[in-house]
Design a protein around this nucleic acid. Sequence first.
DNA 1: GCCGTTTTCGGCCCGACTGTTTTCAGTCG
Length: 572
Amino acid sequence: MQNQHIAAIFNEVADLLEIQGANSFRVRAYRNGARTLENLSESVADLLATPGRSIEALEGIGKDLGAKIAVVVETGQLPQLEELRQQVPAGVMDMLRIPGLGPKKAATLFKELGLISLAQLKEACEAGKVAELKGFGKKTQQSILEGIPHAQEAGKRFLISIATASADEIVADLKQLSSISQVAVAGSCRRRKETCGDLDVLAISDNSAEAMDRLAAHPLVEKVLARGETKQRVRLRTGIELDLRVVPAASYGAAMQYFTGSKEHNIVIRRRAIERGLKVNEYGVFRGEEYVAGRSEEEVYAAVGLPFIPPELRENRGEIELAEAGKLPKLIEVADIQGDLHMHTTASDGKATIREMAEAAKARGLKYIAITDHSKRVSMANGLDATRLREHWKAIRKVREEVTGIEILCGIECDILEDATMDLDDEVLSEADWVIAVLHYGLKQPREQIMQRLLNAIRNPNVDAIGHPTGRMLSNRPPADIDFTTFFKAAADHGVLLEINSSPERLDLDDVQAAAAKSYGIPIIIDTDSHNTSGFNVLPYGVDQARRAGLTKNDVANTRPFAEFKRLLRKS
DNA sequence: GCCGTTTTCGGCCCGACTGTTTTCAGTCG
């Protein structure tokens, strides 16, 4: 995607400038510009090409960055970046991933010792050369040495499902201490980001040492990295790092607000505080020396003239303006979901039968489901051809008669093949109650081919929805190259629903894309893509992603009662 | 490098922790 490409260039320029010791606000300006582009739903190239519209109207984009964007759109690269790369070797950038080693120290290592790779850095440490540098010492040298292997792993983010599991377990353990009156996770995990770099846990306690001892002794904890009066940092065995901060009750809300972030959101909150003659920090809201608020987040927001803002929205992507205008959306909740339109059974690669899936869904309070096994192209998953599919539907109809209290749709997850045709003929697709079309193969095709496939599927009157639209897998597979403007327009025109797939590996559409889809008036469906009866457990991750997109109950089709949902189907 | 009902200069969020120093710089969140 063009926008992401330019954003990546700006971020790299920021990193390089930082190592060169450039003005930190200049560095931040590049990062802000990158963020604006990342969050932009339309193509910046389109914006540039539209007469009467100025790119400098975008937040954080001025004359200079605007001109640079234009250069990248036109030529695909930025000369400034090429120059900077000449000046700072890639290996020096790698050093930034060593914990405790930032741009200043990396620059010193490069300039004083001429080190340009992690391997050379390791040798220099082992030879004791690093400890002799001014500002360095034996301890720093040792911590760098220990951090080098970690640097290959670092920068790696953890799936929200992994992060949540660790955080929940540790929070539950700390709760057992009677000296802790309140403890909860903050940070990106609380904002429900799809991945977390680390974990932040806050506790109210009058005995911080006891809390820290308890954490240090937890079986999930591998190593204590740092420990002070109020803060302890540990590394868990999964590799994720966790900060425990112990705060007094009067500061709990302020600390929760502060450490939940995002950084960008908090900068705006702080600015608002200054405008009101206040100061906000993690201890509270202050007027001069006087404590004004801080026991709860509600108090903190009220002090800067805002209502409580749900953590999922705190990204400075417009939520503060909405809050100010009293227009914050009432975000969708897990309990709003009434149907699940994407799941598998033993007919393809699922582990449970139709009946088991139906019973499990019913037990969770779902009112309707669609059984959507794979089509034949996915041979690895035992995908169905027309004959087997018709047999399968027969079996589904039988279960439909036997299991009451839940509607069961005869569906199919049909592959959109590399040549842009559907994996099953229209004849059989037209017999389905529900068709969810997906890309599984050929995700690396050029944009034109990807778009041809998606558009053909959308124009096929038998297709009700597009599932996991980009095909990305968070840990290892990049998304297909989609022109979202064209994609959303077509889906809106043809009444095709778009999925947020709740699988923590997918979470596809993502938050920004789902918010854009909403702006086109496209109903979203949130599905689990369950492959067994416990697969329904992932639903909250999909709902979280929808919340981050600012979606309400009304924006999500499968919150509706079955009769109403059915009217959205193209064959209805 | 951006931004502006103090508008073209002078700000730009704020504090804990560590290691190196002996009053502070760098890093991190």
